[in-house]
Amino acid sequence: MMTELVLLVDAYLVDALPEIWFGAVMFSLAMYMILDGFDFGIGMLYATRDDDHEKKTFLTAFGPVWDANEVWVVAFGTMLLAAFPRVYSRVLADHYLLAIGFVLALLFRGLGPEMREQRDDERWKRYWDYSFVGGSFFAPLLFGTLAGRWIFDAPTLSMPALLTGVGLVAVSVATGAAFLAAKTRPRLASDLRMYGIIATLAYLIGAIALLTTVVVTDSGGTAEIVLSLPVGMIVVLSAVAGGGGSVLALRGKYRAWLVSALGLPALLSLLVALLLYPTIYPPTGLTVREAVVSPLALNLVTILGFPALLLVLWYFKFLYGVFSGPIEDEGYKN
């Protein structure tokens, strides 16, 4: 018994715990990119609507879930801090304006829909619409650019950083369109699928351009990883998910389209994880093993945090269960 307690202090619960935590942090990043990604997509596609009724439908799809989705970025940040404090510090401090710009974009995105409903006044509504759309566009753009800088050790105004930002915008539009199509009536859905398909193609082209640039310039020493088999498989799978999804969309199979569209950000997160392992902070060459906290701290957050994570996943199942199915004319009644 005593020896076990000592083990808790002196050694990781399992030898691979630092790697497991790297995986857990990347998992919350993936959840964020998938779930808030389609929220951003809803926000950007919202700009294409003039009809107030359709706007309402969009906001209804967004309303009950966005906040829970957004919390994944807090989970990502705080889990990064808990397991790899140095990486959390450097990533945020070294990309100061991008990080602050991102949180401010989230601020405008979050306030928009909620404040819009507070007053029946055309001008008031219009400004909050701008806030919603603008925030939904800049948040993925800045988040992606920040991620690009981090992964590829590249300046803000460089192809790898900007393409990552634009790629995240495109994939968000694609998943947003699929999500909305699955939640709305056929006429609106068939109108939205064109946006979704164009965004999917843009994303795939952008991703290829990004990877090509990276291989040519060897940004952050990632060329070798990009040319490896797993990355190749991710590219192929993304093309299949994107192409297959587009076909499903054209055939009106919107739920199936949604599933394959969500595969895109999931695969993208996997790509990020591959690129960041084991050098979790390329600018300083810091590896997962070097950056990780001591055994006791990591064991503790594992024992308390993993059950909590499972519970969170259950909440999400519950939440999406409550708000499943297409949106009726009156929305989800209050």
Binding site: T78, M79, L81, Y88, V301, G305
Partner: peptide, 9 residues
């Protein structure tokens, strides 16, 4: 880090 992560989760 632990408490902040628990706060989120």
């Amino acid at each position: 880090g632990g408490p902040l992560a628990f706060e989120a989760k």
